[in-house]
């Protein structure tokens, strides 16, 4: 099992969808939310995702394909 700590940003309609639940069901991943903030039309979640390495990679790509911005919890580390 592999763990990844991610910072997810949601905009527009995505803020109203149960995306982490869908991610968990589709890729058999466990998620553990540590912080989140949502307001109208925008929100973010800091969470730990846990699962087998390949499904975890696939799940992150799936999130990006849905329009979720996925970053490490440090956010931009290239500066």
């Amino acid at each position: 099992m592999t763990k990844k700590r991610v910072h997810l940003t949601f905009t527009g309609k995505l803020t109203e969808e149960p995306i982490l639940w869908q991610l968990s069901q589709t890729f058999d991943l466990v998620f553990n939310i540590r912080q989140a903030d949502f307001t109208e039309g925008i929100g973010w979640i800091m969470a730990e995702l846990e699962g087998d390495p390949q499904p975890l990679e696939n799940g992150i790509r799936w999130l990006e394909d849905r329009g979720v911005h996925v970053a490490p919890i440090e956010q931009d580390v290239v500066s």
């Binding site: 910072h7 940003t9 925008i42 929100g43 973010w44 911005h69 970053a71 956010q75 931009d76 580390v77």
Partner: peptide
Amino acid sequence: IIRPVKPKTIAKSLAIGNPA
């Protein structure tokens, strides 16, 4: 809440789209 952006500027040293 900061909305991440895709940088497109000549100011490359400030081109951080998702600022920590």
